[in-house]
């Protein structure tokens, strides 16, 4: 046993307000604990710094999925299993569903939460690339109130975020979009299930009236944070026909937006090449999309 529970204090609030009040009273002293799928691993490994935690898991108000005509709002405690089961997410946000399906095993999916996945800020996390592509927004809440920010830009460096010490991630909002959208998500891990990504690719493209109106691409596992790849998006979005999709230029630009490393899970070389290949697959799917105007 590498840990001593006496080094920790875990307080269970009755409400979100109470949790936030505690966090406001001692800024930085209390860290949020949701489904435990990251923090409890560190605990057992003897690597969880001692101190106080606030037990968010019982706060049902943070585990809701609300659908309105223009958005889906997910409580931060929405689990991967919740995501997979939701019909609107299945229909309109399949990359998020796919990410949830491929995160850990079933027992992890029952406990791992979207808020935790974002807050844990691993560059190899599975859902963030999908969330980036879907233009997710985050609600950060503190005793002072709440603020909404675009998810893009939330991760400021390796394991660094814009979350203040007195804030929790409360909700995520995904704007709904009607019309033809192409989704392409692929996680590359060391095995077919229960794996940590080496590279994770999410790409979507919107077609209107036979034209490409927007392309979004995000990658995990190739930089200190998950990254959006605007340069590559612009190159592809400029195409007016399938033939005009400039794969070579897109690949070259993608490579410039990555900073992969060698570690115990893979090599920089491999990550770079596979990310490019996944982009190549995305381009191939995009070319074949029936939504293009027939010349």
């Amino acid at each position: 046993m590498r840990f001593d529970v006496a080094a920790y204090k875990l307080r269970t609030p009755q409400s979100v307000q109470e949790a936030l009040a505690w966090m406001a009273a001692e800024p930085g002293a209390l860290r949020p604990l949701a489904g435990g799928t990251d923090l409890m691993v560190l605990l057992a490994a003897g690597k969880l710094p001692g101190g106080q935690f606030v037990n968010l898991w019982p706060l049902r108000e943070l585990r809701t999925i609300e659908v309105t005509s223009d958005s889906v709002t997910l409580g931060a405690l929405t689990t991967y299993s919740d995501v997979q089961a939701h019909p609107v997410l299945q229909q309109e946000f399949p990359m998020l569903v796919e990410a949830a399906r491929q995160t850990g095993g079933w027992a992890i999916q029952n406990r791992g939460t979207l808020g935790g996945n974002i807050g844990n800020a691993s560059p190899a996390a599975d859902s963030p690339p999908a969330l980036l592509c879907y233009d997710a927004e985050l609600e950060l809440r503190s005793a002072q109130g709440s603020r909404w920010l675009p998810y893009h830009g939330f991760h400021t460096g390796y394991r660094q975020t814009l979350l203040r010490p007195d804030e929790i991630i409360a909700r995520l909002r995904l704007p709904r979009r009607r019309g033809q959208r192409l989704h392409c998500y692929r996680k590359v891990g060391p095995r077919q299930a229960q794996a940590i990504s080496k590279v994770c690719f999410a790409g979507c493209a919107d077609l209107e009236d036979g034209r490409l109106v927007s392309v979004r691409i995000a990658l995990g596992g190739v930089a200190p944070t998950v990254v959006r790849c605007p340069e590559t998006e612009h190159i592809l979005a400029a195409a007016t026909s399938p033939a005009a999709l400039d794969e070579a230029a897109a690949r070259a630009s993608l490579s410039r937006q990555m900073a992969p490393i060698d570690d115990i899970r893979s090599t920089a070389r491999y990550r770079r090449r596979v990310a490019e290949n996944l982009l190549g697959q995305f381009v191939a799917v995009l070319r074949l999309h029936p939504g293009w105007a027939t010349p």
């Binding site: 435990g36 027992a107 992890i108």
Partner: peptide
Amino acid sequence: GECGACAVVMDGELVNSCLVPAAQ
């Protein structure tokens, strides 16, 4: 939470008991 040998069913859902803090 990797091997599943500690899996139990909690409120009808499968969980890894090594990752569940008692308070939960």
